[in-house]
Design a protein around this nucleic acid. Sequence first.
DNA 1: CGATTTAAAATTATAGATAATTTCTGTTTT
DNA 2: AAAACAGAAATTATCTATAATTTTAAATCG
Lengths: 222, 222
Amino acid sequence: MAKGTDDTIAVRISKALADRIISGAIEPGARLRQDHVAEEFNTSHVPVREAFRRLEAQGLAVSEPRRGVRVAAFDLGEVKEVAEMRAALEVLALRHAAPHLTSAILDLAEEATKAGDKSRDVRSWEEANRAFHRLILAPCGMPRLLATIDDLHAASARFLFAAWRSEWEARTDQDHRAILTALRQGNTESAAATLGRHVQWIGRKPVRTASGATREAFAIVG
Amino acid sequence: MAKGTDDTIAVRISKALADRIISGAIEPGARLRQDHVAEEFNTSHVPVREAFRRLEAQGLAVSEPRRGVRVAAFDLGEVKEVAEMRAALEVLALRHAAPHLTSAILDLAEEATKAGDKSRDVRSWEEANRAFHRLILAPCGMPRLLATIDDLHAASARFLFAAWRSEWEARTDQDHRAILTALRQGNTESAAATLGRHVQWIGRKPVRTASGATREAFAIVG
DNA sequence: CGATTTAAAATTATAGATAATTTCTGTTTT
DNA sequence: AAAACAGAAATTATCTATAATTTTAAATCG
């Protein structure tokens, strides 16, 4: 991951915190105390507050005036919401990207798919999956759309890590392959339809809670 | 407009600046100098910086590290991009909102349409148009989706005001009426299709530039 | 006279300090 | 024992001050 050493301190902090929130290192609902964060990063709280605003905009944190910032909570409803938004926007992006896709790009996307299938842990699977989606969508040339999709991917990853906290079973991604085949054949509509379905596929998994009981965990898997 | 007196200063500033950027009171590309803004609002620059981060997240301003913040510029490509994103997301929202629409809500939406038709200036037309869209979409119960649509509406309004800076000719909005009719008949798909087309309708208009020449101006009109 | 370097002014980014608000904790009251 | 209530501690939001960087303007050189 690019460290971005010339970034402003606020950006560095927001990236670091975003990573922790997404990976689940900080629990949903946990308070983010500006002085503590400032101390940890050896800065004052001014850049910390700016970092908080960034996290807020990404939907990773919520802030109440005078009461501080906390890590955004989420429920099944939000998982579905993000999945549907991703479906709508990624389909749009793919329709515009399709005419600009080269076989070189599709080859890279295929490699990303293979890397995902080989992944032994959630984290590397997520990285490969994200790479696949970004590769086939980036040529749409719509920066605002891509930025929005990126934020939604971050939310998806958060749900994913929350559900498959440590265990992960490898599985071959047939959807990705179907999408690539359709794109290679110039069948954009078929690829878009599969992508739309693929992104909305929600995985279910029983998870042991802190109290010992088991509940269903949900996560977007695509 | 709700003044939000209990808002934090940063929020107040960001709302005031957003209004100016959207209305065109500040030119695209103009620099936003934190000390000047701070002086105007009788504060220090700390809340101003936070306001800038909010504007950045909304896509109304762009910031380059150490070089300051400027009002986001836009071109025809971005107008189209925002229109397509709105089409995709508003259609999604409408599909979810449709089952929860009451005739009371649809009556309010019809009033908003009439108010739009009667508007003598862009500003009040935009307000009525925004009210219409929000009324029929809000019952979808997807907060993240609605927040994203709101930001896109702000961008749309910006393009609109830039093109129709002062003059505005009244016109009856047939699309809004067609959408309401379809919704009243329970024909969600027809309403969604019309909405998707409606949002992407881009108006064209010759505009006199500062140098005296005329160029085409473009704006989303829906 | 135009290009380039240098110096000054303006501006951004961060730090440290202060006032106001909220949260926490222990105690009292019913 | 549960609820209500102080008072103390912690935390947020803001202000003033300082360091670092960029922009502007002037001056110098080719």
